[in-house]
Design a protein around this nucleic acid. Sequence first.
DNA 1: TCTGGGGTCCTAGGACCC
DNA 2: TCTGGGGTCCTAGGACCC
Length: 414
Amino acid sequence: MKTYFHVDMDAFFVSVEEIFDPSLKGKPVVVGGAPDQRGVVSAASYAARKFGVHSAMPLRTARRLCPQAIFLEGHPSRYRDYSRRVFDILTSFAPAVEMASIDEAYLDLTGTTRLHGHPLAAAHRLHDLVRRGTGLNCSIGISRSRMVAKVASDQAKPNGILWIAPGLEARFLAPLDVRKLPGVGKVTEQRLFAAGIRTVRQLAAADEAYLAQSFGKWGMALAGKARGEDAGGWYDAEVGEGGGPKSISHEHTFSQDTADSERLEAMLARLSEMVARRLRDHALFARTVQLKLRYADFSTYTRAVTLDHATQLDTEIRDAIRNLFRRNWRRGAAVRLLGVHASSFSDSAGQASLLDGDGALRWSKALTAVDRIRDKFGADSISLASGLSARFRERVHENPAGLPGKDPQDGRSS
DNA sequence: TCTGGGGTCCTAGGACCC
DNA sequence: TCTGGGGTCCTAGGACCC
């Protein structure tokens, strides 16, 4: 018999902000940026939620619903720091821990009854450990099924613990709206509604052949789960089985749409550098590089290319992206968003690089030096020339460090 | 209401191979 | 000369999650 915990931090970003500024406590707080910016709500305090504000909502909408809210840009490094603290506490408590995102984790407590006692007692002690170690509240769902544990933690919010006794999974889920099932979003919910299915109970009773045909893999798996059966799928993987990242990407939405090709290409170069840097940090090489292009009307296109060798070099990613951009951008059309995405990872370049071995080695060394400088002096302290917007170039050309050398492919100094 | 940024997984069609 | 079946790789798009 399996025992899983799903630990979910309550209003995580907002709660971390409250630690650094206790005067925020109890007030409507919105993390995501200034309310006149392009952007959406990353997190809202419970006081803000009372006004209808929720995550993923445009900031402008949040302001309309709750003009008195305090809007914060947020501090991603603080959130990562606190996420790590939570993770350390969880790993001190359970043999297998998997962070599913920055603010939630699955724990496998199977076979720990002698050590921890009844799951509910264990959950209360874990809750106290997290509270004392970080100052943050969490909610915990407990079940023999990972998916049910996740739904349970959601039902337990805020600051609660909910144990679903083995055998009672289907009874617990039955009265819930189908939207409560992870994997059922807006679209699937609407399609289920159209078929007369609103609750998990109705989903459990629905014709399996129909679900398989209309909703594919997910539909069938969910129908099984709705009946409390153990169907296949992601939720049956062992806790902690998840490997490294499968893709790395960066994207940017301009504060105002632009058709300035120099600005656009400068942004693509910068995004390429950010992606390459993270590849090097993870010691990964990517073979597939993808451009994302969103126009002013929100129409969005992706264009990918698979290279004949895997790379982690700024120049190779940037050049591939630039080619994709030049071939696909409707010249003159205003762009809202640009993105650079890398995937198909391996742990080495594989087949011979386009650069000769010596050139690739020199570049690798130069880039590592750049990475170190950025660590010390900040991300903007040094950049490939084409990664800078024109107005910053002057300054960098005076860069006394003078690193690194020459780009062997196009001779541009960096 | 005017829509971020970082991810994962699934589907579907075409190329290509045996 | 009217057209199989399976497998893999690649690309594009989309649903969904936090």
